[in-house]
Design a protein around this nucleic acid. Structure first.
Lengths: 222, 222
DNA sequence: TTTTTGAATTTGGTATACCAAAAATCGTTG
DNA sequence: CAACGATTTTTGGTATACCAAATTCAAAAA
């Protein structure tokens, strides 16, 4: 059995629907209706909505229906700024704290990506890529960093996915990930920082571009 | 009118009781009993408990009563590490983004502390000190940073309060805050980083000391 | 036709009832 | 007397009922 609480299951389902676009921004999430639709009562549905609100996916309004959030470009950009800062901090700390076994595991992930980059499902490869970064955060051996990083990565999932589809480039990803692993092996903090910078430096601009483009398309079909 | 929801009010009351030590770590927070005691039903009490769980003050256990968290030294230390990193990032960004008016307001806070340091209630002065740092985070003009900083400051409230009581030293606090303001005025990122480092560099060690000392005292009265 | 108003409906907030799992209690048995 | 086990109690999880605020919409008046 999955050992996941009912509110978490509901939250996961709603999260999927929101990220996949089935529930576009602005849609109201009514406790009663959604609960009935999923065959549960309002209590766990209510709790699930709170979870998503905490994640920033829905907005709670006093005495009104919660609605699916429409993150502004600024919000996304702020999140990316913090994400990058956390990864830099992770890299520095990981140089000091990561075990050899952890670095080996990270290298194995890199190797897996290298071998399967062209053949595997793009979505799987994207998940692996996210996993690489999540592992790096955990290698800081600072649970707060790992947790914050995980949360931000989750919130940025959709934006990063859209941005990644454009820059799908084996050389770039593999080489840059490789230089991160090398820096960790050498316990070279400056090199690690530089490698993160090189890898994520364009992320903010990329995401801004793809979101602006999407907003434009949305206006066109209006 | 306060316009604060009932669960938030309940959470605030419980938070006070926990931070003040009225509910020591390990105490179980029973939905039914606590709700009855405060004259509300289980539903908002339940929600309040989730809020505190999210803040890390209580631990949710599957099919068990939530209990007041006993943060380990490691957890506190991890949080301090991230807090310092966020303040450094804030200072850098504030050098670029803060308005002159914001810097003036920060300087006013500093001036207030300077004039009232000895006469005011230590708790008030501590709150003002926290407000100084919260303002700095907001001056990054990055809402994610400001929000994370606020959350961490809240979680570390008790530990910082205990640590601050020892190092209550007018010179130190006023001068160091002053150098932060000066760095911001000059838009000097390096100086701002150095000022934050000088001000918070010992925080981790101080908190570790005071917590270790407290744990020792707890054992003695056992 | 437009505006206003008030009643019906919708919706989140709160209280309560019910259930199942886990603890605790207590009696039984070796 | 100790160890085990059944039963009672406690407790969180879920469902449902009720309420009040807010919205909506229609009817009536200007």
């Amino acid at each position: 059995m999955p050992e996941e609480t009912l509110p978490e299951q509901i939250a996961r389902q709603l999260r999927r629907d929101i990220l996949r676009g089935k529930l576009p921004p602005g849609t109201s999430i009514k406790e009663r209706d959604n609960a009935a639709e999923m065959g549960v009562s309002r209590t766990p549905m209510r709790e699930a909505i709170r979870i998503l609100a905490q994640e920033g996916l829905v907005i709670l309004r006093p005495a009104r229906s919660p609605i699916v959030a429409q993150p502004s470009i600024k919000e996304i950009s702020d999140q990316v700024e913090v994400l990058i800062a956390l990864e830099k901090l992770s890299a520095e700390l990981a140089c000091k704290n990561a075990t050899e076994a952890e670095i080996d595991a990270l290298a194995a992930t890199l190797d897996y990506m290298d071998k399967n980059f062209e053949t595997a499902d793009p979505l799987d490869m994207f998940e692996t890529d996210m996993g690489f970064h999540a592992s790096l955060a955990r290698m800081s051996h600072n649970d707060v960093i790992a947790e914050l990083h995980r949360t931000l990565l989750e919130r940025l999932w959709r934006a990063r996915y859209l941005a990644a589809r454009r820059r799908r480039n084996r050389e770039r990803v593999i080489v840059q990930h490789g230089s991160i692993v090398d820096a960790l092996r050498n316990r070279d903090r400056a090199a690690a920082l530089a490698a993160i910078e090189a890898h994520l430096g364009h992320l903010d601009r990329d995401i801004r571009n793809v979101l602006a483009q999407e907003a434009e398309a949305a206006l066109a079909t209006e």
